[in-house]
Design a protein around this nucleic acid. Structure first.
Length: 533
RNA sequence: GCCCCCUUCGUCUAGUGGCCCAGGACAUCGGAUUCUCAGUCCGAGAACAGGGGUUCGACUCCCCUAGGGGGUACCA
């Protein structure tokens, strides 16, 4: 038997982290077993432009490397893969259920049902429809229709016995049939409901393993009833625990994006993301530029492998030690048997640490590749358009910055923290606080001027010799190294924090360093003249 | 309300009756390294929801309670 799993998103306009975790598990399981992963679009209830609302979801899956064997864009032998286009299949199923006595036309109005429901509640018993308006014969139908009633099709659920759902993750779950409502499968307007569509599609697509979120566990009985009434073999079920909100066990929801922004850890991620977006001059969508939406991570320059690594560990673990997984290792080791039962809350800080770790393992080459598009989009790297490769000397400089930055570049977008290496000397922007803190100190300018003279005669403008020279200089001057480094840094980079100072000098090169220092000295001089205090 | 599911450090988890006075990771807090920052290294604190059983022995099995979550739609 070939394993076939599916992920069935609704076109909502964005891919959220909980949804993608479900997709990942389905995908991982299929890949682990050399099976197929199918993408089906649950758009039965869709008013909006489906393609438009679907695009970000497909894009997010592509970005994460979750590829599908059948579905939108790629087609497949069992299509169409959009529920909105499968009406004839659902209609046939409804008719079959009707014929088998597993469903009926119900002519009750919502209000009439509501009355029954409330009565049941008052009497503290399980609500079950009285089936007063159930029509199982043409005669009944004609009678109700003469009253001007419109029918919906309901499942005629069993009212006795017990169903045992076998679930890989949860074991056997027993439920009484008599608790199950006669759910509507086709609306009065002829449209179909999720449960029916879902069962028919899973069967048509030959899905072997239904891997989905826990919220569907309670819905499973009615789906099993539909499947059995239609004579289908049951798929194997695996109900995944929720991805919960940080600091809570409530399911991460699509509709509470704003709320998550108030969480301190989300806020930290968002702040970092905004910094990158600002540096790019990006106008971000306030609604979806949000750490709960996958697209956010792509824009900021996270690594897809870091995200999938983190997400895989949200509800699954291989053992008590291993945490770092490449995508291939994930495929190799994933199993549903080791999926947890309890909801796991999403921890932005931990995701960040995975990102950090994956970034650290990248080669220089790989980092350059990822970082260059950000420099291009920010208009920093000249002489080349997007998609083109930077000129050799420019590339060398980028490499130099990345090497010197070490672990400081946590996301690709972080390269934009170092744009001051790339701007023209007379365009360097100084951070006022940095200048005030170090350069406006008494004697700082004089010391810097002297140092500048030394710098001018350095032959090998590399980090090591520069450091040696500087140490010799401070010793000769009888000052501490700290007296020069901070003002020097501020003068050449405009910042109070940054890469190693000598690396920074080397990256800029002698000419830039001298010109930036001179510019700063002049600036200090003129401001001193203006306000002599 | 009713039904179902879940419950180990703040968080993600390991643990399937003795290896556990509970292991790892993130986070936190110390300390070391350093020109800042990032890192790195060393170290610390931190949990079996509660109560009953079963057993020579329970984090592990059973029951109850509590808490959390989900479902209960002509939503998906």
């Amino acid at each position: 038997m070939t394993v076939r799993t599916r992920f069935a998103p609704s076109p909502t306009g964005y891919l959220h982290i909980g949804g993608v975790r479900t997709a990942l598990f389905c995908w991982l399981f299929a890949r682990r077993h050399g099976g197929q992963f199918i993408l089906r679009i649950d758009d039965t209830d869709q008013q909006r432009n489906v393609e438009e609302a679907l695009a970000p979801i497909l894009h997010g899956l592509h970005w994460l490397g979750i590829d599908w064997d059948e579905g939108p864009e790629v087609g497949g032998p069992y299509g169409p893969y959009y529920q909105s286009q499968r009406g004839d299949r659902y209609q046939a199923a409804v008719e079959k259920l009707l014929a088998a006595g597993a469903a009926y036309y119900d002519y009750a109005t919502t209000e009439e049902l509501q009355v029954e429901r409330e009565a049941a509640e008052r009497e503290k018993r399980v609500f079950l429809s009285s089936r007063r308006f159930m029509a199982e014969t043409a005669v009944d139908r004609a009678r109700f229709e003469a009253e001007g009633r419109k029918p919906a099709v309901r499942l005629k659920m069993p009212r006795e016995g017990t169903l045992v759902i076998q679930d890989i993750i949860r074991g056997d779950v027993a439920v009484d049939w008599a608790r199950e409502q006669d759910h509507v499968i086709q609306r009065a307007d002829g449209s179909f409901l999720y449960h029916l569509a879902n069962v028919v599609d899973d069967y048509d697509f030959k899905i072997t393993h239904v891997i989905r979120a826990e919220e569907h566990l309670s819905n499973t009985p009615r789906q099993i009833f539909i499947a059995q009434s239609l004579g289908y073999d049951l798929p194997i079920y695996a109900h995944l625990p929720f991805v919960a909100e940080p600091g809570s066990k409530t399911k991460l929801s699509k509709r509470k994006l704003d709320k998550y922004l108030k969480n301190a850890d989300f806020a930290t991620l968002l702040k970092h993301g905004r910094k990158v977006a600002d540096a790019l001059g990006l106008t971000v969508d306030q609604n979806t530029f949000n750490p709960v939406v996958v697209d956010f991570y792509e824009q900021v320059g996270y690594l897809p492998e870091a995200i999938t690594n983190y997400l895989a560990l949200l509800g699954w673990a291989l053992d008590d030690q291993t945490e770092h997984f490449s995508r291939a290792e994930l495929i190799q080791h994933f199993s549903l048997e080791r999926v947890n039962k309890a909801a796991a809350s999403f921890d932005p800080k931990k995701l960040w640490s995975f990102q950090d770790r994956h970034m650290q393992r990248l080669t220089l080459e790989q980092k350059v590749e990822r970082v260059v598009p950000y420099l291009q989009r920010a208009g920093i790297v000249e002489h080349c358009g997007a998609g083109e490769t930077p000129a050799p000397q420019e590339r060398a400089k980028i490499e130099h910055v990345i090497r010197a930055a070490g672990d400081r570049i946590k996301t690709s977008g972080d390269i934009l923290d170092y744009v001051y290496f790339f701007v023209a000397d007379d365009h360097l922007v100084y951070d006022e606080k940095a200048v005030a803190k170090s350069l406006q100190k008494l004697g700082a300018a004089e010391l810097l001027a002297k140092y500048c003279g030394q710098l001018a005669v350095v032959e090998s403008f590399e980090a090591q010799p520069l450091e040696q020279m500087t140490h010799a200089f401070v010793e000769a001057q009888g000052v501490k190294i700290g007296d020069i480094v901070h003002s020097l840094r501020a003068a050449v980079t405009g910042q109070s924090v940054g890469l190693g100072l000598f690396d920074s000098l080397a990256i800029l090169g002698k000419a830039s360093c001298l010109s930036r220092i001179e510019r700063m000295l002049k600036q200090l001089e003129s401001s001193n003249n203006k306000c002599p205090d």
